[in-house]
Structure formats: structure tokens, C-alpha cells
Design a protein around this nucleic acid. Structure first.
Length: 571
RNA sequence: GCAGGUGUGAUCUAGUCUGGUAGGAUCCAAGCUUCCCAAGCUUGAUGCUCGGGUUCAAAUCCCGGCACCUGCACCA
């Protein structure tokens, strides 16, 4: 069994361990399984919760972003605005001879204008009339077939509104912007997070839990005044380094400050959240040497994005994208503004109100009304909006009202000079989006922490991530040792620590079981415990043991669990 | 979706070519052993991916589905 890539884990070994120990395994297996669907087992669910807690600790507690929780099924309009409907509805053709698949609109790009806006039927006709053949073997191509990567459903049992399972959690943070901005007392910057499931009907899911059809995300949207893109914590971390692989340049280690000042990373907040990403991934136990930030190539970056970096990890599947940190500009909010009537903007107050002298047309409604009847309102609005440069107050104004020429006599308006006080301006905020693929991070945690010494397997999980914090054993299940151990186990659970009581098999076997599950510490009650009221604590990574008074055990265990105490420092 | 490969207890695997009682190892469980690093002994549980066909007889041969792996395509 060879590793897939040099110095990286064979995924089959990780998959085997995951299944054997209840981290994760294919779903619906007794019914033949379903590609792209996995279950998290008992240890996996606990570890997934721990990764989420670590993430929340950073984003919600430390950075002060707030969490929302919104529906998975969303109406079609949301995805028309987000662009997913168009993006996910490609038409694909296949070569009859060499079986290769191509996007129909791509093949027509050279010969037709705007092929991506054509219907399935139009594309098919255009393919025939332009005599399009397979680009690689010149074979005959099939009819275009719709490829929709979103799961569609109908809301209402008797048919109703079309809906889709969201392909990302982000949209709710955009279309609720007006409420969330108000929640933040109308200040910028502020940020929102959402954790939850997203769905993509992948054509061919592969590689375990790294490309699922139903997957878990942890996303943040941080909103900024585009003219003032700063984040308060930046200065503190400006000198810390990141491993960067910029588009078109060599891989290099740069401080946040230098990367921004050299224009490699577009702005400070983007660099800041890249740093936050690195911090979280290291705390989750990923190997710094196998992490890098790769900048999206100009060609792969969405056209509206200002800059985008993927945090990638080297795993048994090669380099795997775990996190995307993107500056999406104002694209998402603007798009929802365009598709709805909502005012998803922020009002930026000037330090001092600005007084501006302006020439304005003031409609005279008492003259307009009788003359134009029902159209008077629309005409008055148009007059108020039109530029007044060079207008003569004594001449009639000619308007084009939906193709109809309307002459407004001079008595229907006046032109006057006004002083306008402007106290601020309305802007569409820019957004920086750190988006984390939880399942991929989960996989990489196992990949990077798998250690083998001969046959002996240890999962070196950090205690914050480890599903079980302490194994609790009686050396023998008799002479009352088991009662004492049960008592210890119960006490630790009451303190909120997940333990695993095990009295079966030899002591070595029990340590081995816990090592493979990634449990950092084991507590053993032995015969001496009955004399000295002490138990041993054994460290997974060094196999060293220390004796601790049972009365102090709570405190020691809690401190070990929150990493405020190290094993070496136990007195 | 296409092409190729693979599918035997929870895991790794022998058996498939050449049809005839499914075997081993690990793990798991119960027990013995004053048992601190997968020791030993006894006992036990769990399996041929699913469906159809050929045959007296199918893990084995044929057809189809499903899943996994690799490549292609796809990857907001």
C-alpha cells in the first residue's frame, strides 16, 4: 500500500481508521450507498462540533461577528440574484466518438454572440447550423443537455414556488443585510457568520469527504466602507508571516504588512482574515509546513472579485482547498439590490455636513395636474430628476415619456437656486468573505495527525479538537478499583469533559484504543490509589505518567482541556 | 456522464483463471490472569456489493445496477 503522494498519507488508511473508529463512513451503505454522502459517526460528530466551536471561538467571541441561522431551502429568486442559477445551468454536449464532454456555449463562443444567454433549443440549432464538431477528434456531438448542479425542489405539496437547496450559506447574510446592519447600529465594518449545510449535485463526487454532495460550511461575511477598508486587529498581527503563492510569482513567506504594501494581497482586512484562517487551522492541529495560501489566477477568479486566496493543505489527495478568503467587492449586495426592492446600503455620514449650491427644477403641481391628469405625477418626478444646466425658465421643456413626446409649458415649473445640505452618502458596502469547508478541514485534521510507529497508530489531535478528552480506566476491574474509576469518570463528565470509561482488555490495549481515537490523556486508578488517593495521568504523545491527587483531578483536567496547563507542568 | 480497474465479517486479505464444506490475521465481546503500554490462554459474534441468468451446484462464469479507485470532463 503506497502513499498517493510522497510524504503524504494514503487516503485508504485514513478512510479505514475513520470507519473503524466511528469518525466517518459512507452513508446508506446497507442500501448500496450513495455517492457524495457520508455519515459522521460518534467520534466524528464530536470532533466536528469541536472544530465548529474552535471556529466560533475565533470568529464570534474574538472577532465579534454574530451568527445567524437561516433556511436551507430558498426561493429561486435568491439564486437568480446570486448568479448561481445561471452558473449552475450549463448546457453540455458530448462527443459520440471519443465521449468527451464540452460546454455548448464555450464551443459557440467564436461564432455566435452571447452563447451563454441562449436556450437549450437555440444552442442545439446553432450547433447544427454552424457545423460544430468535437474539438479534439472532430466527431459528431450530441444534443445539448442541461446540467444543473443545484438540487431543485418545489415548496408546497401541491406545487407552488420553485426552490433550491442552497449551494452556500452566504446568501442569507447578504439578503438580510438591512436588518443585520441595523442590528449593528448602522456602523461599518461589521460581520456575520453562518455555519451549516450546502448542497451541490456534483457530477462525480470523489475522494471521501473532500467533495460531498451535502457538505458543511463555516462562512463569514464582513462588510466594509469601500473607502475605509480597515479592521481593528490588523496592527497587532501585521508582522506575522504567511506562506503565499501569488499569481505569477514564486512561493514566498511575507508578513501581512509587507504583502499588503507590496500589493500582493489587495488590502488589510483580506490579509487579516487570512491570518485568522491560519491561526484556526493550526489550532485544529494542521501542519504549518503543509499549508499555503494560493492566490486565484486572474482567469479563475470571478469577474467581480477584487482578490481571492485559497488556503490549501497538502494531503493524501494532493493540495486541497480548505478555505477561500475573497474580497467580493459590492457584487452580492448590489445584485440583491438590483433583483429586489430592498435598500441594502449603508449611509456614511460626513464629518461635517456639506452645503452645496444647486440649480433645481421645482414642478408646479397645481398647473401640471389639470393639464396632464394621470401622467402629472410621473412628469413631476422626471422634472425633479433632470439636469438643469442651460435650461431657460421661460421656455417649455420637451420630455420623452416612454416614447411619447410631452411638452411641458413654462408655467408648470420654476427654476431656482437652492442650498442643499448633504450630511453623508449612501454606499453599497464591500464584503470580505472567508469561507471554510468543514469536511475538508476535518479530513485534513486526520490526515495531518495520523502517526504510525510500526503497527502502532496514534492520532495526535490537539485537545481542543479531540472527541474524547480523557480515557478513564481501572487497572483491574475488581477490588473496588472499577468503582473508584467510575466515580472519577462521572466527576469529570459533570465538569463538562467528554470521557471514555474502559475496563476491558489489558491496560496496554486500552491505551492503544485511546491513542488511535486521538484521546490526549488517560487516567488510571491502580492499587496504590486506594492507599494514596492518587491516580495516574498518562500523556498520549510521550507516554509519560504523573500522579495526581484525586481531589485535584477536576482542576487539573479542566486546565489540561482548555490548554491553560501543559502535561509537563503538572506538579 | 465516459473509459479502465476494483468489490470476501468492523479492518486487511486467501480462495476466482480451472464452479463442488468460505480460510487466515487484526479488531470486537465474554472469561482467566495484581494487568501501566496492542502479552498469553479459553470461548464467542460478525462476511462473499446487490439483482438477474447459466448450471445438479456460483464468491468463482455471463448480463445489469450500486459503490469505491484512476484518468477525462466538471468543480459558483
Amino acid at each position: 500500500m503506497k502513499p498517493c503522494y510522497r510524504d503524504t498519507m494514503d487516503p485508504n488508511i485514513v478512510l479505514g481508521l475513520a470507519k473503524r473508529r466511528g469518525f466517518f463512513f459512507p452513508s446508506f451503505e446497507i442500501y448500496g450507498g450513495m455517492a457524495g454522502m457520508y455519515d459522521y459517526g460518534p467520534l466524528g460528530s464530536a470532533m466536528k462540533n469541536n472544530i465548529e466551536s474552535l471556529w466560533r471561538k475565533n470568529y464570534v467571541l474574538h472577532e465579534g461577528l454574530s451568527e445567524i441561522f437561516s433556511p436551507i431551502i430558498s426561493p429561486e429568486e435568491v439564486f437568480r440574484a446570486s448568479g448561481h442559477l445561471a452558473e449552475f445551468s450549463d448546457f453540455s454536449v458530448q462527443c459520440q466518438k471519443c465521449k468527451q464532454a464540452f460546454r455548448a456555449d464555450h464551443l459557440l463562443e467564436e461564432v455566435v454572440d452571447n452563447p451563454d444567454s441562449m436556450s437549450q433549443k437555440e444552442l442545439g440549432e446553432a450547433m447544427v447550423s454552424n457545423d460544430i464538431k468535437c474539438p479534439s477528434c472532430k466527431g459528431e456531438l450530441s444534443e445539448p443537455v442541461a446540467v444543473n448542479l443545484m438540487f431543485k425542489t418545489t415548496v408546497g405539496p401541491l406545487g407552488g414556488r420553485d426552490g433550491y437547496m442552497r449551494p452556500e450559506t452566504a446568501q442569507a447574510m447578504f439578503f438580510n443585510f438591512h436588518l443585520l446592519h441595523r442590528f449593528y447600529r448602522e456602523k461599518l465594518p461589521f460581520g456575520i457568520v453562518q455555519l451549516g449545510k450546502g448542497f451541490r449535485n456534483e457530477i462525480s463526487p470523489r475522494q471521501g469527504i473532500t467533495r460531498l454532495r451535502e457538505f458543511n460550511m463555516m462562512e463569514a461575511e464582513v462588510f466594509f466602507d469601500p473607502e475605509n477598508k480597515v479592521w481593528p486587529g490588523f496592527a497587532e498581527v501585521a508582522d506575522l508571516k504567511l506562506r503565499l503563492l501569488p499569481d505569477g510569482l514564486e512561493e514566498q513567506e511575507l508578513s501581512l504588512k509587507d504583502a499588503v504594501s507590496k500589493g500582493i494581497i489587495a488590502n488589510e482586512p483580506l490579509a487579516y482574515f487570512m491570518h485568522v484562517t491560519k491561526k484556526i487551522l493550526l489550532a485544529a492541529g494542521l501542519d504549518d509546513k503543509r499549508l499555503r495560501f494560493r492566490q486565484h489566477l486572474k482567469t479563475e477568479m470571478a469577474h467581480y472579485a477584487e482578490d481571492c486566496w485559497d488556503c490549501e493543505a497538502l494531503t493524501g489527495y494532493g493540495w486541497l482547498e480548505l478555505v477561500g478568503v475573497a474580497d467580493r467587492g459590492c457584487y452580492d449586495l448590489q445584485s440583491h439590490i438590483d433583483h429586489s426592492d430592498a435598500e441594502l446600503t449603508a449611509f456614511i455620514r460626513f464629518p461635517e455636513p456639506i452645503e452645496m449650491e444647486a440649480t433645481v427644477i421645482v414642478p408646479n403641481l397645481s398647473a401640471l395636474g389639470p393639464l396632464f391628469k394621470g401622467k402629472a405625477g410621473a412628469i413631476a418626478t422626471r422634472l425633479g430628476e433632470m439636469p438643469c444646466d442651460g435650461l431657460d425658465a421661460t421656455m417649455p421643456i420637451v420630455l420623452d415619456m416612454d416614447g411619447e413626446e410631452v411638452t411641458v409649458p413654462a408655467n408648470c415649473f420654476t427654476i431656482s437656486q437652492e442650498i442643499k445640505k448633504v450630511s453623508g452618502k449612501r454606499i453599497v458596502p464591500h464584503v470580505i468573505e472567508p469561507s471554510y469547508g468543514l469536511d475538508r478541514i476535518f479530513y485534513t485534521v486526520m490526515d495531518h495527525n495520523y502517526k504510525e510507529d510500526g503497527e502502532y497508530v496514534t492520532l495526535g489531535l490537539p485537545i481542543a479538537i479531540a472527541p474524547i478528552k480523557f480515557g478513564v480506566f481501572p487497572l483491574m476491574t475488581k477490588d473496588g478499583l472499577d468503582d473508584i474509576a467510575s466515580e472519577v469518570d462521572k466527576k469529570l463528565r459533570q465538569k463538562g469533559l467528554l470521557t471514555y470509561y474502559d475496563g476491558s482488555g489489558t491496560i496496554g490495549r486500552r491505551y492503544a484504543r485511546m491513542d488511535e481515537a486521538g484521546t490526549p490523556f488517560c487516567i488510571t486508578v491502580d492499587y496504590e490509589s486506594k492507599e494514596d488517593d492518587c491516580v495516574t495521568i498518562r500523556d498520549r504523545d510521550t507516554k509519560d505518567q504523573k500522579r495526581v491527587k484525586m481531589d485535584d483531578l477536576d482542576k487539573v483536567a479542566i486546565s489540561l482541556a482548555d490548554s491553560s496547563l501543559t502535561f509537563e507542568a503538572i506538579g
